[in-house]
């Protein structure tokens, strides 16, 4: 019953894939943002697991950076969603196809 590194890594991987599913399958922009949070958190689990394994602070420091960046990302992301809502009266990401070639 040893504590394995892979336990944590697999947990991260599963969360990551669930997040990816959410990003790809959800229509609502806020839901997409939530799924992105899942992905970022799965990465944090990996970072902290490695940090503890090697006994150095670097991984945890990067996890903190990821948290900070995630906060910024949510802030800007929600501002964009608000703009989207204001201009299109909807936050369905598949209705936004202005970049269509």
């Amino acid at each position: 019953m040893d504590l394995m590194l892979n336990q944590f890594l697999f947990l991260g991987a599963i969360l990551f894939c669930i997040g990816v599913y959410g990003v790809l399958a959800r229509r609502n922009a806020v839901m997409v943002l939530m799924s992105i949070e899942l992905i970022l958190n799965s990465v944090n689990i990996n970072l902290v697991a490695f940090s503890t394994m090697w006994g150095v602070a670097s991984g945890a420091v990067f996890a903190l950076f990821v948290i900070a960046v995630a906060a910024a990302e949510v802030g800007v992301g929600l501002a964009l969603v608000l703009m989207l809502y204001r201009n299109m009266r909807s936050i369905d990401v598949d209705r936004v196809d202005l970049m269509k070639g």
């Binding site: 806020v30 943002l33 944090n44 945890a60 903190l64 948290i67 900070a68 906060a71 929600l78 608000l82």
Partner: peptide
């Protein structure tokens, strides 16, 4: 990191997301 996670994520980001839900 755990404390930061609780403070920033649960305290701020989720609240922000809920605001986003309501504002839209």
């Amino acid at each position: 990191v755990a404390v930061t996670q609780v403070l920033v994520y649960i305290g701020a980001i989720v609240v922000l997301l809920l605001f986003g839900v309501m504002l839209t």
